[in-house]
Design a binder for these strands. Structure first.
Lengths: 218, 218
DNA sequence: TCAGAACCGTACCGTACGGTACTTAAGCGG
DNA sequence: CCGCTTAAGTACCGTACGGTACGGTTCTGA
């Protein structure tokens, strides 16, 4: 796994990583080491001393952004239907907020580009800190729901992937390809609720009608 | 719309576009005009004469690949439940096959990269020929299903996006980020069937039990 | 047969950028 | 006050690549 714990960068180094994020987000031209040095008021030599090379700088930026974004976990014991729904919906809101953020879009673009050019494992790092990290955090919740008789499924991974699909739909690919989608907080909350509702419709245990039967998604 | 009709390239020019695809797929290093000219046995000058510049060459490649990939449509009249399900499943298989193909992955990566760097509308072109094109082809089918009382939904776009999510889940982002996923024909068929089944569970009209109630997705 | 177009192969140019080296200045322990 | 470390700022180098120019060759049509 590439998801290390909290990176132990100094504040000065964190300023550099934030400069990288700013430059990636403002996009325009590609990220150059000279631009990073200029923006962070440091020398290129220092950059290379701290981060090795350009890829190391990008990898550190990915990990730094990921470490800032992890939300709190849940408490698995004494999980009733509404708690499960609220926890799932909270995850959903958090995840949608993350993947629609300009930072996440920019870093995912970098990861995709690097995955294409073959060299460096930056795509893998983005995957580990993005898609796989959220999976590892949601799956225990799903299994707790199953243990408490609230959900009915066999394979946790498959079930999570369905939830992921219901939630993300075409959002990530459209944003990565430059589509300007409105992603207000209200819209995110609505989409999270809809995805959660649909998820319960598909996987809610049949003996928990108060959760599964609410209204059809329109 | 950027989805023009069949491009009217000569065979010689098509050979060039296929060379671009081969180079993009074999990835390794970034696509250079010199490499294209070498692979296609033509001169760089001819490349620029035919396609304007590097971006024009890439845009032409995207459109050429898209024009090759469009599958046949369906017949909307006299649509019964099994026909609707089969048509949806056929779309699903086709779409999954396309987005997991090496050509599609490579072109989507190019589109994402260009969308990030701001210049050129290649990301938009990929979107128009990918996500939006499949939407425009599936939505009439959904509406025909609704008109025949087989589906129950309000907004066609929202409904299609849910189908899209159930089908694609995390596949596209994982492939774009370099995850090596097994995508055998059998697996694609299974995923298409599962997505279609789940879609009917969510949107199937309640007075069509033979379609909606089959078995829970496990 | 000849003129002209199309086009291949290659050489060339300018620039952008990753990475390195060097100079200077600031902080700091002794 | 002095040596040492850190790092800013800048100049520099090598290379890769987009785009152009040009000579030579094949094709085409009269």
């Amino acid at each position: 796994m590439e998801t290390a714990g909290e990176p132990d960068w100094t504040q000065r180094q964190i300023d550099v990583l934030d400069a990288v994020l700013d430059l990636l987000v403002s996009g325009g031209d590609a990220l150059t080491t000279a631009a990073v040095a200029r923006k962070a008021n440091c020398s290129k030599e220092t950059l290379y001393k701290w981060f090795g090379d350009r890829d190391g700088l990008l990898a550190a930026t990915v990990r730094w952004q990921a470490s800032r974004v992890r939300a709190g976990n849940f408490d698995a014991q004494h999980l009733d239907a509404s708690q499960l729904r609220e926890s799932l919906e909270a995850f959903a809101v958090n995840w949608l907020t993350v993947i629609t953020s300009r930072n996440s879009i920019a870093l995912n673009r970098v990861g995709v580009s690097h995955a294409g050019s073959g060299k460096s494992n930056l795509g893998r790092i983005v995957l580990e800190n993005g898609r796989f990290a959220i999976g590892e955090r949601v799956k225990p919740l799903l299994e707790a729901g199953r243990a408490n008789g609230l959900l009915d499924f066999d394979d946790t991974e498959t079930t999570f992937r369905t939830f992921f699909g219901l939630l993300g739909r075409d959002v990530q690919i459209r944003l990565l390809l430059g589509d300007r989608m409105e992603t207000t907080d209200a819209e995110i909350a609505r989409d999270a609720a809809r995805a959660t509702q649909q998820f319960f419709a598909l996987y809610g245990a049949s003996d928990a009608p108060s959760v599964t039967a609410e209204h059809k998604p329109h």
